[in-house]
Write a protein that binds this DNA or RNA. Structure first.
Lengths: 344, 344
DNA sequence: ACAATTTAAGAAACCGGTTTCCTTTCAAAT
DNA sequence: ATTTGAAAGGAAACCGGTTTCTTAAATTGT
């Protein structure tokens, strides 16, 4: 249906080769011919078929983005950032969600490779460091967004989780809390190891010995999981007076538990999250949270990835990977105990 | 790098044609040859290159999904639903967001067509009915998810907005409210015309004349826009005692305004939203909302689209479009004035 | 015993681009 | 006057699949 390069060539009375050369500026074309081709192009409304182009050039101008769950606002922000820079640089995103299942993840990676994506950005990986490295060695350009695989030899952009956790816990300590619980995700994810570590370190530096009873690492990370964890902690004989939740979603769940048990936030329970998703602003209690900015991570990750793709295009060199670590800040709202105009 | 069909053919000692026939089961292949090819395939780890396949078959097994803003949880849910059925039927999603700009939308459609998507699902259209119809006539399979273009000749799945709005407003009326304001999106979007209409009708049916002062149609639909609208309404000489917000995002913004002005929800202001996004469960005041289920719309839209694509593949017939209209329900939480166990 | 089918497999064209060669023309350089 | 090389453009191969056509052998029918 749509016009092809052959149609254009015919209309302009030249060969396909010449049209291609003109379009890409890769070879001498006389002024006169240029004009004829240009007018044929606009008359036919010709636009190159990217699929054919991709086959020939082995470049699809498409990037795969793998997230765990689109419903999680943290990922939504990250996707937003990614989409923004992808679009601005002429790429489109193939989106897929794993729901945290390693199997789905493997099949997604296959599907993406079959589609010849120029690169894959993982905002969720259950793949082992080794597997990711293998992928990269196999020529697939990879970037990790907000995921830390210490031994994977690929670009990453991440937030300093240890520091972020300490920021959160120290703030709660400044509010006078001593019984500060931790609720986080699976320890198989480096991020949560770090956040847990930050929690422990901050407590110890303040002379508080972390209680194992107050340390919860969950398999799922949705609001429901946070809710269950919240119930569990609040019903303890010695319930914490504050909780550091390693993701905002978990924090929201904890809020729901408080709401149900009629515990006021922040007075009866102070809460600090991690991610600073936009909704924290209008959550049950406006959520104080460590800002790792998913948006920025999405942007930076795609910049890194596209830079690498295009650099490699020009000069296929094995150059070093970059690890971009963003410094977290604390986004103070009210769930920690601060009130507007009276932050600690 | 990856094995091609030629490699497989060579390894199995047959021609490409035979391999292709075996893989697709489109022609006789002897048992013995089948086995040789199968073993070559598994030894080489061969997987067909979808780009090449797409060029030849003019099918990419890729579907474009156009949304306004991924950060909006309504779209996030819709995307989730869409991704789920796309994946289960062997398609992947090309995601793009328009930010509500018609220009971006046009360029996105072009980009998608160049990439030979098998179809496009619009969860956001600023395109006119006519343009969408033209697209469809031009051979692009189209579905509208949660968007109503009355005159477009394409499949659509949408929620009955008039009915949904009436559900919301009637509920507020049952709570005894008379001064019920409306805050919605641009009237260029059919949906908001309908929701506004539902608001008016419900009021009139209850013998209340809608006040123009209490009727706000906004250009943007983010939390910030809702916040501004909330401030405006609350500062009126005769402020409403209840507000029906045509999207949850707007409702969240209104909550923020209430919070700032120290108006308690639902006691000083009752609020009902539209979309029933999951986050409403843990918003400042748990949000009562009309459930149009973005998730289900995303699912259904993709089912419709894929069905059409595959039907058309077998027998290119111009058959009638379907309009699937989902019945809204009211998801009652607390912002309307109901309390748990004591719903009206 | 011979025509008609069925079964099996390969050659070549095609999808829509890009790229490598190759040829021709014409101006500048020796 | 001849060589050199830049400018311009086309033919054909290629990317990795699918499909149409042919051909040939094996099976069936009469």
């Amino acid at each position: 249906m749509a016009a092809t390069i052959t149609d254009v060539a015919k209309a302009a009375g030249v060969s396909k080769a010449t049209v291609s050369k003109f379009l890409n500026g890769t070879h001498y074309v006389s002024q006169e011919t240029k004009e004829r081709i240009a007018s044929a192009v606009s008359q036919l409304g010709y636009a190159p078929n990217r699929v054919a182009q991709g086959l020939s050039l082995r470049r699809s101008h498409t990037i795969g983005l793998v997230v765990a769950n689109i419903g999680n606002p943290f990922y939504a922000e990250l996707i937003r950032g990614a989409e923004e820079v992808a679009a601005s640089r002429g790429y489109t995103l193939l989106l897929a969600s794993t729901d945290g299942e390693p199997k789905r993840e493997a099949s997604i990676v296959n599907a993406m490779r079959q589609r010849q994506v120029d690169g894959i950005a993982f905002a969720s990986v259950r793949l082992a460091d080794r597997e990711v490295t293998a992928l990269a060695k196999d020529g697939v350009k990879v970037v990790l967004a907000s995921r830390h695989l210490p031994d994977a030899e690929v670009d990453m952009v991440l937030v300093d989780s240890v520091k972020g956790a300490k920021l959160a816990v120290n703030h709660l300590i400044q509010h006078g809390h001593k019984a500060i619980a931790y609720v986080g995700g699976a320890l198989s994810i480096a991020q949560f190891q770090d956040r847990l570590k930050g929690w422990k370190e901050a407590l110890r530096e303040a002379g508080i010995e972390p209680s194992t009873e107050h340390e919860l690492s969950l398999d799922r990370m949705d609001v429901e999981a946070g809710y269950q964890a919240g119930l569990q902690l609040l019903k303890l004989e010695n319930p914490p007076t504050a909780i550091f939740a390693a993701t905002d979603n978990l924090a929201f769940g904890i809020m729901k538990a408080c709401d149900e048990l009629n515990r006021a936030i922040p007075d009866q329970l102070a809460l600090v999250g991690f991610d600073a998703v936009p909704f924290g602003e209008v959550s049950l209690s406006p959520l104080t949270s460590v800002d790792g900015s998913g948006l920025i991570m999405g942007q930076r990750a795609l910049q890194l990835l596209i830079d690498r793709i295009e650099r490699d295009q020009r000069a296929p060199s094995e150059n070093r990977q970059v690890r971009m670590v963003l410094q977290p800040t604390l986004c103070i709202r009210r769930s920690c105990g601060c009130r507007p105009g009276m932050e600690i």
